[in-house]
Simulated scan of single mutants.
Amino acid sequence: MDIEQGTAEAGCWLEPSAVGRGLVTRAARVIIDWAVEERGIHRVEWWVSATNEAGIAVARRLGMTRDGVLRASYLYRGERHDEEIWSVLAPEWRAGKQAS
């Protein structure tokens, strides 16, 4: 979180036995809402492996926009992976809350 710039990154890792219960989406909503409403953050980012379909689905459920792909940017277990960057801006977040 960079208060001066008004930016933050949200993300998580989930215990495999907890997958499919909506925990990540609910927790991320609370974190993003806190960052926007309490800390004055303008932009919240979600960085996710381009092959992580579940993580990308969370970004979509959170109302985020796919900003782009960083090709071969992440070295993991000896292999380079693409990362997607998704984001939501404070006005979009607030509008999404009102629509729900």
Rank of each mutant, 00 (worst) to 15 (best):
A99D: 07
A27N: 08
G22W: 05
G55F: 03
A8R: 00
E83M: 14
Q5W: 03
I31T: 14
T65F: 03
H81Q: 08
I56C: 11
R39A: 13
R77V: 01
L89E: 11
W34T: 15
A27V: 06
R94W: 08
S17P: 13
K97R: 09
T51N: 12
R60I: 08
V88N: 11
K97A: 07
I56H: 09
D82R: 00
K97G: 13
G68H: 11
V48E: 07
G78Q: 09
A99S: 09
L70R: 15
A8H: 00
A8F: 00
R61S: 03
D33E: 13
E38H: 09
L14G: 05
A35K: 06
E37R: 15
G55E: 06
W46K: 07
E45C: 04
A27Y: 02
D82F: 00
A95D: 10
R43C: 11
V44E: 09
G63C: 00
G55M: 01
R77G: 01
S49F: 15
V30K: 02
E92D: 10
Y74C: 15
S17V: 14
A28N: 04
T51D: 14
A35C: 11
V30Y: 04
G78I: 13
R29F: 10
R61N: 04
W34C: 12
G22L: 05
G6L: 06
M64C: 03
P91N: 13
W13K: 05
V58G: 09
R21F: 04
S49L: 14
A8P: 00
A54M: 06
E37T: 14
L23W: 12
Q98C: 07
Y74M: 13
R43W: 15
A10L: 06
R43T: 11
R94F: 11
H81C: 07
T65S: 10
V24R: 12
V36N: 11
W86T: 10
A72F: 15
W34K: 10
R71S: 14
E15V: 04
R77L: 05
A10I: 14
R26M: 07
P16H: 04
R39D: 14
E53I: 12
I85T: 09
S49H: 15
W46N: 04
A28R: 06
L75H: 15
M64D: 00
E9L: 03
L89M: 14
E37V: 13
P16I: 02
V36K: 09
H42N: 12
A57V: 01
Q98W: 06
Y76Q: 15
P91M: 12
A10P: 04
R66P: 07
R77C: 05
W34F: 12
D33C: 04
G20K: 09
A10E: 08
L70H: 14
E9K: 08
I3M: 01
G68S: 10
I85K: 05
Y76A: 15
N52I: 01
R61F: 02
L14Q: 12
I41G: 13
P16F: 00
T65H: 06
I41Y: 12
R66H: 06
S87Q: 02
R80K: 08
A28W: 01
E37G: 14
E4Y: 06
G78T: 13
T65D: 05
V44T: 15
V24P: 11
L14T: 14
Q5T: 10
V24F: 08
G22S: 08
I3S: 01
A90F: 02
P16W: 00
